[in-house]
Design a binder for these strands. Structure first.
Lengths: 189, 189
DNA sequence: TGCATAAACTAATGTTATTAGTTTATGCTG
DNA sequence: CAGCATAAACTAATAACATTAGTTTATGCA
């Protein structure tokens, strides 16, 4: 009964992001976002097509943020430094914005070309320095996959509390990245 | 209206596993499992406490199967062979039983001691050969985490179709495992 | 000043999990 | 062999969710 003008789709995505980061992506629902914005659930449909689109918008927004952080971290670095910086920035992002990390990496059945494009751009930030280290194109593909697996797996297991905290978790991260870099030296041209 | 005697909780878990492997863990619901077993949804409550318990039972069942496969794969192998065999068997399992892999690795807020215990046993299959290769205890912890991250990340990304199929995905797996083994040589005693 | 419209609302439908209470076939027991 | 307790099915009902349809109202422009 009180139409207001201020509410933009940016507000909606921000609310979704807040909820996702606080409680997990699965808590992002029409009803919870509506409650957070102080409107009734059906009112959201004036702005978005439905829950699927809400998740999609959050995914795009989160990919953009992730790209921005990773670009900043790898900008103007040597190839080897770029790999390290990328890795730590990637983990930092997942820790700082866990729900948005989930959204950015979740697989969407019918994701836009836009979302695919964004995810490709993120990967290219690490493909370029690897390629320039002198690996063959095919090996570069494998090593990109390895680094992605390593980082994504680390995030998943850490967020699932899959590691006991006996030994410092950050030391494990250091060892992982160091071991990866040592392991690939062998294949450098 | 037709009480039958045959339905066991094993049947229910098998149904849940079938559905999970076919369509994904998120498709395992009271209503879908009931439909698969040809009973009405409330009838399931004669056998299980609810959806949470169903997921829990599936998780335990899946961990047992995973442990069995990995134990078989690493049994009577040299330390180095055990690491390789473990890795390939792990990936094989995730490909053959994707829904059960999800169930086995999903994080449950209040999982039993039993579930934790099972997951620990799985990890010990790779902790032992690493430790016996002569690493310090602390390094062993880091390397166990690294291998878990690598394998889990690979599964996640592959199941999300995160890899383009330009280059053979199995070659990537070979390179990953090989690179890991080379990377850790440096720290062996 | 008035009107078109954006953006809120209420009401209603369908799906899901779950609880309560009812019925009936099975299998043991006297 | 009859009967009875019970396991295991059922129907009915409630609550949470997404979604659609149709209604109302304040805003901002003409």
């Amino acid at each position: 009964m009180t139409p207001r003008r201020g509410l933009t789709s940016k507000d909606i995505v921000n609310s979704a992001a807040k909820i996702a980061n606080q409680n997990g992506l699965s808590y992002v629902s029409i009803s919870v976002v509506a409650q957070d914005l102080d409107i009734k659930p059906p009112s959201l449909y004036n702005h978005i097509r439905g829950l699927d689109e809400l998740h999609e918008l959050l995914a795009i927004h989160s990919c953009l943020l992730l790209y921005q952080k990773l670009h900043l971290a790898t900008h103007n670095q040597s190839n080897r430094e770029a790999l390290t910086s990328f890795s730590y920035a990637y983990i930092d992002f997942a820790r700082a914005y866990p729900g948005q990390y989930e959204a950015a990496t979740h697989s969407y059945d019918e994701h836009h070309a836009q979302l695919k494009e964004l995810q490709d751009q993120i990967i290219n930030l690490v493909r370029t320095p690897l390629y320039e280290l002198g690996f063959e194109e095919e090996y570069t593909v494998h090593l990109v996959r390895m680094l992605r697996s390593l980082l994504h797996g680390f995030v998943m297991l850490e967020s699932a509390q899959g590691f006991k905290m006996d030994y410092q978790i950050n030391d494990s991260l250091d060892v992982m990245i160091e071991t990866f870099l040592i392991g690939i030296q062998r294949f450098e041209k």
